[in-house]
């Protein structure tokens, strides 16, 4: 079997091993940055008293902010509020998935469903940037699976580690890593005028709505940012 083909039928093939390897290598630095965030979540699971139950969210929820919000809201406001806040925060996944749906128009259904489970901020950003450079569907498939599975394995492993050594992390102030990791995903967008406008509007709205109930401010900021982007787009094309 050559290094560049897996199975002869292109819609069944996962992708070339080289494409998978590229996805793995692209995700490893991002994963390293996310490890402290995962340790924070694992520690929160341990503090909650049910680390195994908390850890299951690492792959089921597969979203740090929603996972952390669900754990913390569970203690302060109960099950229903925890579910609601987790879902509201993860509602942004609809946007990511819709964005990738167009990229994946030529992909087989099995991939679209399987890969959907791996859609989250860093895999979305990596897939978007990669698709801009490489339109080949098979390459995109292998790349995304390599990146997504690397993140999934590393993320759940780091959360498990955080749950195990949780109490020893209490003296460390790791919260700062969360905004730093997220900033790396959108930093390049600051160079584009339209995206800069979106970022500024979303940031202002998010700041103004930060005390709104679980995740609603987040949705407002997404909507405001999208409108700002649409207005810039219309002004540019008129």
């Amino acid at each position: 079997m050559s290094a560049t083909t897996v199975i002869s039928q292109p819609n069944v093939a996962i992708g070339s091993s080289a494409a998978v390897r590229r996805g793995v290598l692209a995700m490893l630095p991002l994963l390293t940055g996310y490890v402290p965030f995962a340790l924070v979540i694992g520690s929160a699971c341990a503090d909650h008293g049910a680390p195994l139950a908390g850890w299951t969210g690492s792959l089921l929820i597969f979203g740090g902010s929603a996972h952390l919000a669900a754990i913390r809201t569970l203690d302060s406001a109960g099950v229903a509020a925890a579910i609601f806040s987790g879902l509201l925060i993860n509602a942004r996944l609809v946007v990511y998935s819709a964005s990738l749906a167009r990229r994946w128009a030529g992909q087989p259904r099995w991939f679209r469903i399987a890969a959907a489970g791996l859609i989250i901020d860093p895999t979305w950003a990596a897939a978007e940037q990669h698709a801009d450079r490489c339109p080949d569907p098979q390459e995109q498939r292998g790349y995304f699976l390599g990146a997504g599975l690397t993140l999934a394995a590393g993320w759940s492993g780091a959360i498990a580690l955080g749950a195990l050594i949780g109490p020893r992390l209490n003296g460390l102030d790791l919260q700062i890593v969360v905004p730093l990791c997220l900033l790396a995903l959108v930093g390049s967008a600051l160079r584009d005028a339209g995206s800069r406008r979106v970022i500024v509007v979303a940031a202002v709205v998010a700041l103004l709505t930060v005390h709104w109930p679980a995740g609603t401010g987040l949705l407002m900021a997404i909507g405001a940012g999208a409108i700002a982007g649409l207005m810039h787009d219309r002004r540019r094309s008129s």
Binding site: D121, W124, V201, L207, A221, G229
Partner: peptide, 24 residues
């Protein structure tokens, strides 16, 4: 529509940055 959706994704991450910064 594709551009607007991608920008909505950027807005989502920006909002998460603000929320996480505020809590830190």
């Amino acid at each position: 529509a594709d551009r607007v959706i991608r920008q909505a994704g950027i807005a989502a991450i920006t909002a998460l940055i603000v929320v996480s910064t505020k809590s830190t």
